[in-house]
C-alpha cells in the first residue's frame, strides 16, 4: 500500500507515521509537503498530528486552505481512505470533510497521557481488524480535543454508526472519569458518512512498538492494509 503523509509547517508527527508505515509495516510512504497539489498514485492519505501554522486562529483553520487540501478532498471524494490524527482531525473538521469541531479541553490543560479507547464499529477501513467493543490503549497529546457537534449532527453520527472510538476505562466502560478532555459523549474518533475519512485525537503511530509502551496502534494500520487487500 502506498501512503502520503502530509507535512504542513508545524506538523510534528510526520516522521513517526512514516517510520511506522515503512520500518514496522514495510509499506511505501512519502512525506508530502503541503504545497503539492497532486496525490494521484497514493492509496491512503495521512494527516499527522502537530501544530500546523502554530495553531494560529484555530487549530487546522489555516492548514485547511493549504494547496494540498484540494487534492485531499478529491482523494476523499474518490472513496479512498484519509486518516487525520490529532491536528489532522482538527484540519478535517475545519475543511468540512468531517462534521463538528474540536474545542479547548474542558479543564484547559494540555494532556499528554495514555488513554483507553472502545472500538464502537468495525465496518470501515480503519477498524476492520478490530472486534466491536475491543479496548485499545494509545496516547493522546493535545490541548484542543474536546469534540463538539450540534444535537442534530450528534444524532446522525449515532444513528449512522459513525462514532468509531470512545474514551473508556481499561474495562471498556465509557465513564466521565475516562474522558480526558470533556468530549461530547466521550467521542475520540468519527468517520464521514461514506466511512472512508477518519478523524481521531489519539495517536496510533505512537503505539506501535512494545518498547514505546504499547502496540495497539497497529490495529488501525493493519485494518487499512486488510481493507485494501479485500478491495
Amino acid at each position: 500500500m502506498r501512503f502520503a503523509v502530509i507535512v504542513f509547517p508545524g506538523t510534528w508527527s510526520d516522521y513517526d507515521c512514516h517510520y511506522v508505515l515503512t520500518s514496522i509495516l514495510g509499506q511505501e510512504a512519502d512525506l508530502v509537503w503541503h504545497r503539492q497539489t497532486d496525490l494521484a498514485g497514493y492509496d491512503c492519505v495521512v494527516l499527522p498530528g502537530g501544530f500546523s501554522y502554530g495553531d494560529y486562529l484555530r487549530p487546522g483553520a489555516i492548514a485547511r486552505f493549504s494547496p494540498v487540501m484540494e487534492a485531499v478532498v478529491k482523494h476523499a471524494q474518490a472513496g479512498r481512505p484519509v486518516i487525520g490524527i490529532c491536528n489532522g482531525f482538527q484540519i478535517l473538521c475545519e475543511a468540512g470533510l468531517l462534521p463538528g469541531a474540536l474545542l479547548r479541553n474542558e479543564h484547559l490543560q494540555y494532556r499528554c497521557q495514555w488513554v483507553h479507547l472502545r472500538v464502537e464499529v468495525c465496518h470501515n477501513p480503519f477498524t476492520v481488524a478490530c472486534s466491536p467493543g475491543q479496548v485499545l490503549r494509545m496516547p493522546i497529546s493535545h490541548g484542543e480535543g474536546r469534540y463538539y457537534a450540534d444535537p442534530e449532527t450528534l444524532d446522525s453520527l449515532k444513528r449512522e454508526g459513525r462514532i468509531v472510538f470512545r474514551y473508556c476505562d481499561p474495562k471498556g466502560e465509557v465513564t466521565r472519569q475516562a474522558n480526558p478532555n470533556g468530549s461530547l459523549e466521550n467521542i475520540a474518533g468519527i468517520v464521514n458518512r461514506e466511512g472512508n475519512v477518519l478523524g481521531m485525537m489519539p495517536h496510533p503511530e505512537r503505539a506501535c512498538e512494545a518498547l514505546l509502551g504499547g502496540e495497539d496502534g497497529l490495529f488501525i494500520w493493519r485494518s487499512l492494509l486488510r481493507w485494501a487487500g479485500s478491495c
Partner: peptide, 8 residues
C-alpha cells in the same frame, strides 16, 4: 470563510 468557524 476563515476568521470564524460557523460550527462553534
Amino acid at each position: 470563510r476563515l476568521l470564524a468557524n460557523p460550527v462553534i
